[in-house]
């Protein structure tokens, strides 16, 4: 009875120096954030390419992109992560053998970024495509009539016009990316959730460590929300306020 209260309150376990596990948790958080940022940026590149392909590509490209976004959205992230993790590392090693190089050990970090990026790419494709279609066609035609080149139309009309429609969806996807990194614990990437379980398993203070990790995740979300609100205010400047 007293033992578990003591287990709850043994705060020295969270100390940053080795007898405590605080430093390990922060290291895990750093890995999680690196995977989230890397995966999100890779997803954005895929999303821009995918949205462009869906809007301007030929019929075959469009159908293939539809297959990609539908598949990724219909299969659980956990299953996708396992599949892509093994398939991605396998494919890379086959490629290395093919060009005569030696097998490489792919770091969990790089594989994690790849996996999160492919998943994010499907969702960002849909968000960006929707935002692009929300820009009134007349505005683009008017810009063309003024003699703007297509790059100028993109920079002056399309991008600023689609930004307010893209920001809420993209912001939501960023929050999802930070939480999806936890799934990499299942394939053994030493991100925050996995190191938390290891810390809990070693010290038997599961409750303390999972609460501490939960607070770290929550802080990432809350700090992100502050930034998102700023970006949203910038993107919606000059537009009527919602609510």
């Amino acid at each position: 009875m007293l033992e578990w209260i003591a287990g709850l309150a043994s705060w020295e376990l969270l100390a940053l120096e080795p007898p405590g596990w605080g430093g390990v948790l922060l290291g895990g958080l750093a890995i999680s954030l690196q995977v989230a940022v890397g995966g999100y940026l890779l997803g954005f590149l895929i999303g821009v390419g995918g949205a462009t392909g869906k809007l301007y590509g030929g019929p075959i490209l469009r159908d293939l992109l539809d297959v990609y976004t539908t598949l990724v959205r219909a299969v659980p992230e956990l299953v996708l992560i396992l599949l892509l993790y093994y398939a991605g590392t396998d494919a890379l090693n086959q490629l290395m053998l093919l060009i005569g190089a030696e097998r490489v050990d792919i770091s969990g970090l790089a594989a994690g970024i790849f996996v999160i990026g492919v998943v994010q790419g499907a969702y960002q494709t849909e968000v960006l495509r929707g935002a692009f279609k929300a820009v009134p066609h007349g505005q683009i035609e008017a810009a063309r009539a003024y003699g703007m080149t297509s790059f100028q139309v993109l920079r002056r009309i399309t991008l600023p016009g689609m930004l307010p429609h893209a920001v809420p969806g993209l912001a939501n996807l960023w929050l999802i990316a930070t939480k999806d990194t936890a799934l990499l614990a299942v394939v053994g990437v030493a991100e925050l959730t996995l190191v938390t379980r290891q810390a809990g398993g070693t010290t038997k203070s599961y409750f303390l460590f999972f609460c501490a990790a939960g607070l770290l995740y929550l802080m990432v979300t809350l700090i992100s929300n502050v930034g998102i609100r700023r970006v949203e205010r910038y993107a919606r400047r000059g537009m009527p306020a919602v609510r």
């Binding site: 709850l8 929050l175 939480k179 379980r197 038997k204 999972f210 990790a213």
Partner: peptide, 20 residues
Amino acid sequence: IRGTPLLLQLWLLYYGLGSL
């Protein structure tokens, strides 16, 4: 709930509460 990963919540309940 919306700010933390579900996997963490699940493990908190199972390992954390269970061990308490």
